[in-house]
Design a protein around this nucleic acid. Structure first.
Lengths: 338, 338
DNA sequence: TGAAAAAGATAAAGCGCTTAACTATAAAAG
DNA sequence: CTTTTATAGTTAAGCGCTTTATCTTTTTCA
């Protein structure tokens, strides 16, 4: 039924060891035998059983990807990009949706460890450093993406979130906005974005009073709406809102409209990520773009080089965000004037 | 280093066969020994090596999911739902993005076969029946989702696409539309939708002249825009457009606006899928809803029961679509009147 | 021409597990 | 008290592959 290394060996009149050698390009083999064996392999449509070799400690060409929410466009685009690069390089992806849930993170980690994935790409919340350190202690390749652990030696490819926040604030300030609301889930990357944001404000002598605001248990769009409602009906109604991802921004726009605010005339909105939805919503969203495509490529490449042992030192690749101006932001109107 | 069945056996003073038996709940084991072994397993934090058992023909608790485009919200939501259900039941998902490319489909199929996934969930285009039949001949569990092969015995969970198309047409007709454009990629499910659509028209004595229209090589949104431009600037400018997925519909709305058409006043638009973007775009999209959540659950459950051999006969589960009315469709204005 | 070195191929052990066949023990039956 | 039978546990083969030590053949060159 299933063709094994024995079948090939018999057919080619050699030992299984010889076959193994040509499979792995190891040891001394004459060209003649190599050719013969290869021919037979083709002819029999032989494919080595990965499990048998995994048993012997070889790689499985599979990497685990832990992601908080595959249905969030940023993550699904990132996943697609990682997957593509993986496919190019001969790696498969076991994708696990953690739903920002640390219990699930744990479960997946031990499950996939058991399934001998060659390494882990963590795009999850992972506020918990311990788990990552645990993996590293066991010498399991780990790469973090879209999330940085400062002060901690780990392979990572991340966005300069600080700069992203700075860019957003800078844009808004230049348009004359001074009273700006922020909506962000309390994650590390968002903390950085907020830091950059505040830094820009400070440079111009501005202050921001609003801090982390987020409503758990809702999806991003709903959370964006709720918070926007709160902001826009409060006393110091902001003239602009910085939403820390595009989904949130979509919610902001929706609620603004529902409350009778015109975007961008009455309220400027800037998002983050530059996913497909930024161009789908109305008005098209001004947003801070993450280079999702190269991010995926870089992280997969890094993962592979770690797996192959080419990298012994840790490295951190930082990609830079950029401002994409569309229609959801504009210069503030002078109050009272028309 | 790694703790094996031998370590457990030694520690518990039994043979490895006994340990194996308690792991798999097989054979005769006294309660006392069972408890003892279990304790030791916990204590040593032992986890069986899946590969070793896979080598012996046991399951890997991994299923392959082939999907055309994980970044399309319909598929990412579907993937999430499948993944969730899988996780509940102890299965992992290897997700492969085929990009509607039959070469990639082939590659993934043989690759994952080699990696001994327990079965395949095919959400891909798979116009090619042969491959599916090939898998089935090898007795590899296969379930098709969101895509039906009529006249062919295969496990599937699908939407009643015919009804979906019918519902869309019915809604539009009741609103008085007679001249309706259709945008759809030429896939099986869309052919069914179109058939249902036309059926409804025929019932009312209406005809549709436009047929399959799609532009390959573009993403859905762009394709939707291009085609809309063509329709709206043509002679028999339609009063309504049926787009066979929400992404396409988003493109339609965008282009309509760009051309100065008001939605829904000048042009009614109905989508398909009811993904998150339906509520994000402006105006909110009237669309035919697929029960994505239950679809994912059903397909995973079906897959598992096939894997476990509980199902010997093929079965086809058909879910029903429903119309979700939002703001992108309205009754047609009588021409000339105001 | 012959001994040493190099090259090519092999046998066999072992990775961690399952399982069929078997042995030992205890309980039931004659 | 021996024989049968059910029960509890063990032995050992083997899944398909890698790899080390070993053996055989060919090449090299003094």
């Amino acid at each position: 039924m299933k063709v094994t290394i024995y079948d090939v060996a018999k057919e080619a009149n050699v030992s299984i060891a010889t076959v193994s050698k040509v499979i792995n390009n190891k040891g001394r083999i004459s060209d003649k035998t190599r050719k013969k064996v290869k021919t037979v392999m083709k002819q029999l449509n032989y494919h080595p059983n990965i499990f048998a070799s995994a048993l012997m400690g070889k790689q499985t060409k599979t990497v685990g990807l832990l992601i908080p929410d595959i249905a969030n466009p940023f993550f699904s685009e990132l996943a697609r990009s990682i997957e593509n690069r993986g496919h190019e390089k001969g790696y498969n992806l076991v994708i696990s949706n953690t739903n920002y849930d640390s219990v699930k993170e744990d479960q997946y980690l031990s499950l996939l460890k058991q399934k001998s994935v060659d390494g882990f790409i963590l795009a999850s919340g992972f506020e918990n450093l311990d788990k990552v350190q645990g993996l590293m202690k066991e010498d399991i390749p780990v790469v973090i993406v879209a999330r940085d652990f400062p002060m901690f030696s780990v392979n990572a490819v991340a966005l300069d979130d600080f700069m992203g926040g700075y860019l957003a604030a800078d844009h808004l300030i230049k348009l004359g906005h001074q009273n700006i609301g922020v909506i962000a889930r309390d994650l590390w990357s968002n903390r950085e974005r907020l830091r950059g944001f505040k830094h820009a404000l400070k440079e111009k002598g501005l202050e921001i009073n609003s801090n982390f605001e987020y409503i758990k248990g809702l999806d991003h769009v709903q959370a964006g709406k709720k918070l926007t409602q709160k902001y826009l009906t409060s006393e110091e109604c902001p003239s602009a809102i910085f939403a820390c991802n595009d989904l949130l921004a979509a919610g902001v726009i929706q609620m603004a409209k529902e409350l009778g605010f015109k975007v961008p005339e009455d309220l400027s909105i800037i998002g983050f990520d530059n996913t497909a939805i930024a161009t789908i919503i109305e008005p098209p969203l001004t947003t801070i773009a993450q280079p999702i495509e190269s991010m995926g490529k870089e992280v997969m490449d890094l993962m592979i080089s770690v797996i192959k042992g080419e990298k012994t030192d840790k490295s951190r690749i930082t990609l830079l965000p950029s401002l994409v101006k569309r229609k959801s932001t504009e210069a503030i109107k002078i109050k009272g004037k028309k």
